[in-house]
Simulated scan of single mutants.
Amino acid sequence: MQHEKINYLEFPASDLSQVKAFFNAVFAFEFTDYGPEYTAFNNAGIDGGFYLSDNAMAVAKGSALVVFYSANLAETQDKITAAGGKIVVETFEFPGGKRFHFSDPCGNEFAVWSDK
């Protein structure tokens, strides 16, 4: 742990079982449950958790955007849709790479980028 650096992230999820299955299948997250309303994840680059909530994160609502890196954007996109995620912003290019946005099965918006 580093003093005064981001150490942990928490996200809402309306269905913890569904969100755990999705993030395990797509990104190989590992989970530890802490009661029926919270699950912590690791093996994600940074540790964090999901808490039971009817809310969802979206950039249009002012949410911060968590961005994953992929060496193969098309492959990651296929894994996301196969696991029940939805593409909410199609792949677009920007200086240095390209990315797309997706929502998990609980409606939270994330993005994936690549420099490939």
Rank of each mutant, 00 (worst) to 15 (best):
M1D: 02
Q2V: 14
H3A: 00
H3M: 03
E4R: 04
E4F: 05
K5D: 02
I6A: 12
I6Y: 02
N7D: 11
Y8S: 06
Y8F: 14
L9S: 03
L9N: 05
L9P: 03
E10W: 05
F11I: 08
F11M: 07
F11L: 08
S14Q: 15
S14F: 09
S14E: 10
D15E: 09
L16F: 08
L16T: 11
V19Q: 12
V19H: 14
A21T: 02
A21C: 00
A21M: 00
F22K: 14
F22W: 05
N24V: 00
N24F: 09
N24R: 13
F27I: 00
F27S: 02
A28G: 07
A28E: 13
F29G: 02
E30M: 09
F31Q: 09
T32W: 01
P36M: 02
P36C: 03
E37A: 15
E37F: 15
Y38N: 12
Y38T: 06
T39G: 13
A40L: 12
N42Y: 11
N42D: 09
A44P: 05
G45T: 03
G45D: 01
G45H: 04
I46P: 04
I46V: 15
G48E: 01
F50R: 12
F50I: 05
F50Q: 07
Y51L: 10
Y51H: 13
Y51I: 14
S53L: 06
D54K: 13
A56V: 14
A56G: 00
A58C: 03
V59S: 11
A60P: 03
A60R: 13
A60Y: 08
K61S: 11
K61L: 11
V67R: 03
F68W: 10
Y69D: 10
Y69Q: 12
Y69M: 08
S70H: 04
S70F: 04
S70I: 11
A71N: 15
A71D: 15
L73W: 03
T76Q: 10
T76L: 11
Q77S: 07
K79T: 00
A82I: 04
A83R: 02
G84S: 08
G84T: 01
G85Q: 09
K86F: 02
I87E: 06
I87C: 10
E90F: 00
T91M: 10
F92S: 11
F94I: 01
F100D: 01
H101K: 13
F102E: 06
D104K: 12
D104Y: 07
C106R: 03
G107S: 07
A111W: 00
A111Q: 02
K116T: 15
K116Y: 09
K116S: 15
